[in-house]
Write a protein that binds this DNA or RNA. Structure first.
Length: 270
DNA sequence: CGAACGACCTGCAGGC
DNA sequence: TGCCTGCAGGTCGTTC
């Protein structure tokens, strides 16, 4: 669920309900996420007004005057805005209750997500090492090309490396490479500047499209328990191993790159 | 230093 | 029906 577009969609979904709102209480039912939720997080948040909600990479930042909550959805995390209290289910780990009765509920079956507190987002170790945002003007083919010099790792692992560019997960790495016509396992250093320009363009386009389609999810954000289905119809290669390429009919190939499933077209991506 | 890989955890699908 | 295996959107920390 949470690729960058989903995180961005989540941000847009929760923002209108919590900005300018005061945190009344924080209920933690399960501290054991990727890192334990700090025990003093409730008292840090309580009484604070959410001034801004930001996204950095796949992290959501709930910013207050005294510090920020850092939230990551991991592989299976989800945020919901509840209008009224609803009994917590098995994986509903955290509720942030606001003065206007809105509840922000964090659900995460696999618990790879995180909820932390920091006084200073600029110096927080998790946020400090991050590479460029894909929608930042400095993210370009030239930028990728420069960073790829002498890099032997596969181009797919390269664009999934958060120190290079953030927010490109397994789905959209595969999709971007297909759109750019690049074979996922070739070494990053062997990609030409031309190809990198194509790739940077593809990444932006794919992510932008997905965010746009995430907008449909946004609509039923408040009441839906259902899964967003925005990506399924637009995916060209992800999850389609063995099926014919939409572009040329060749059966799509499945390989393993960096322990992640990777699907590509041997004919269209060369 | 870069690159590979294990680890974290639950749920689900598929094979037997 | 039940057990076992493998796989799933992420990414940090350790090891080679």
């Amino acid at each position: 669920m949470p690729e960058l577009p989903e995180v961005e969609t989540t941000l847009r979904g929760i923002e209108p309900y919590i900005i300018g709102n005061t945190v009344q209480a924080v209920v933690i039912r399960h501290y054991g996420l990727r890192w334990p939720i700090p025990h003093d997080l409730p008292e840090k948040l309580q009484g604070q007004v959410i001034q801004q909600v930001k996204r950095r990479a796949k992290y959501l930042l709930l910013e207050t005057q005294t510090g920020s909550a850092i939230l990551h959805l991991g592989m299976s995390g989800r945020l919901q805005v509840l209008n009224q209290a609803r009994s917590a289910q098995k994986h509903d780990h955290v509720d942030i209750q606001f003065a206007n009765q809105i509840i922000l509920r964090f659900t995460d079956p696999r618990r790879f997500g995180a909820l932390l507190w920091t006084e200073n987002t600029a110096t927080h170790p998790l946020l400090q090492q991050l590479g460029v945002e894909p929608f930042d003007p400095t993210f370009s083919g030239k930028y990728l090309w420069l960073r790829a010099q002498n890099k032997k790792i596969s181009i797919k692992s390269f664009i999934m490396d958060n120190k290079i560019v953030v927010g490109v997960g397994n789905i959209y790495a595969a999709e971007s490479l297909f759109l750019a016509g690049i074979t996922p396992m070739v070494p990053a250093q062997s990609i030409s500047l031309d190809q990198f320009q194509q790739l940077a363009k593809s990444i932006k386009l794919i992510l932008r499209q997905a965010i746009k389609q995430g907008g449909t999810t946004l609509k039923d954000f408040m009441n839906s328990e259902g899964k967003p289905g925005y990506f399924s119809q637009s995916l060209k290669v992800y999850g389609r191993a063995g099926l014919p390429c939409f572009q040329c009919g060749t059966l799509l190939t499945l390989v393993r790159i960096g322990q992640r499933s990777t699907v590509f077209c041997q004919r269209c991506q060369s």
